[in-house]
């Protein structure tokens, strides 16, 4: 892998670069979200059960309906995955004409001033809200609905943690690339490579196989 780092970083795509710390954070997010993504299949199966009960046996229970949206609510976890896969919608008319460096500066500022304050503040407020639901043993507003409303409510702060981790991962990656695209020579990189802590922030171009 040696020989393909140096000043490539100034112009390469972020997705073609690995920064160990970022990759670790990203893997936390993807491991969790790619598992919970399967809950959409669970939603389908519950809908099948619901329809069968309703039209086959002329019976329906409020808790079955509620189970559907309890699993659907996991879509909130997807918001963090969409950060790591860079698929949140951008108005890219001007953005795509900017240099990689400027794009990275925008990412860094955006994450620091737009995403992170939002996640921290809403998280802070939602913790007491979930706690209260737990203490009150909150029940569905429907007579035959589901108990333990705090479980589905806790998906909100949990998803905010994931969004925070995902954006932290992107933040680190962009900062690292900004630094290395300015100062990098093979020598400085190699010397930092051996420093025990900085090692985790050392960017490498991914193998074509890896991408």
């Amino acid at each position: 892998m040696s020989g393909n780092h140096s000043n490539h970083f100034a112009e390469c795509d972020n997705k073609d670069v690995r920064v160990p710390v970022s990759s670790f954070l990203t893997s936390i997010v993807t491991t969790i979200t790619t598992k919970t993504a399967w809950f959409n299949v669970v939603v389908m199966l519950i809908i099948l059960i619901q329809v069968t009960l309703r039209y086959g046996f002329n019976s329906g229970e409020a808790w079955v309906d509620e189970l559907i949206w309890h699993f659907y609510a996991f879509f909130m976890f997807g918001l963090s995955y969409a950060i790591t896969s860079d698929s949140h919608i951008r108005v890219d008319i001007m953005h795509m004409r900017l240099s990689k460096r400027k794009q990275r500066i925008i990412e860094v500022l955006g994450i620091l001033f737009l995403i992170m304050p939002f996640t921290i503040i809403v998280f802070d407020h939602s913790i007491g809200w979930v706690h209260h639901s737990f203490m009150a043993n909150e029940f569905s507003e429907n007579t035959t609905g589901l108990p333990y409303r705090w479980i589905v409510k806790s998906l909100l702060p949990a998803s905010l943690i994931l969004i925070f981790i995902a954006s932290l991962s992107e933040l680190i990656k962009n900062v690292v690339l900004l630094i290395y695209s300015n100062t990098s020579t093979d020598k400085t990189l190699d010397s930092k490579k051996n420093n025990s802590l900085l090692r985790f922030f050392y960017p490498v171009i991914k193998n074509p196989k890896e991408t």
């Binding site: 229970e61 409020a62 507003e141 429907n142 007579t143 035959t144």
Partner: peptide
């Protein structure tokens, strides 16, 4: 509900 109706609010 007692009379077999499924209710929602």
């Amino acid at each position: 509900e007692k009379l077999g109706v499924t209710t929602s609010l």
